[in-house]
Amino acid sequence: MKTITKHWKAFFAAALILGAAWTAFTAAFGPEETSGRISAPRQGFLSPDFSLQTADGSTVTLSDLQGQPVLVNFWASWCAPCKAEMPAMQRVYEEYRQQGFTILAVNATNQDSQKAATDFATQYGLTFPILFDVRGEASALYQVRALPTTFFVDREGNIHDMLIGGPISEALMRAQVEQMLAEAP
């Protein structure tokens, strides 16, 4: 520290000149960004694609929803924070669905049961699609380590933000949805 402060002029001159040269070198030869081009369960990356069935047997594929902001929520009927956040999720869905927003509630059926999940959806009056991840493939793709885990997927299919654990506050959900809706389609 003493040496640096004694020769502060030389230190700053070297830092500024070498810093400018390094910035220029980085701009010319720096490695290319991979986020946004490969899929990974992380903010800025392409959302890993999955196809899962709903209770009525129809199949929902995430990539088919490109062009729409999507909230992907991994949950289970026995999970207390999932129960706490679902009513807010339903309110947000009702408010923004006309603008193209949707929710895919992926039930971790490998740790739950289809009946319990369906009863839960009925009890809470959930109208957004409930998907059954029977073999846990979608959970594995998204490296889900805790329930609930939520991903906000933008119109281009990139992960806008993600949250591990819950319950998510309603304002955070609204803020994220509004930011995604504000992005040009």
Binding site: A88, S169, E170, A171, L172, M173, R174, A175, E178, Q179
Partner: peptide, 16 residues
């Protein structure tokens, strides 16, 4: 994110 918090003012003290 004012509109989001006006719709859900309780979130201001959320631990998130």
């Amino acid at each position: 994110n004012l509109p989001a918090f006006l719709a859900s003012p309780g979130s201001l003290i959320s631990l998130s």
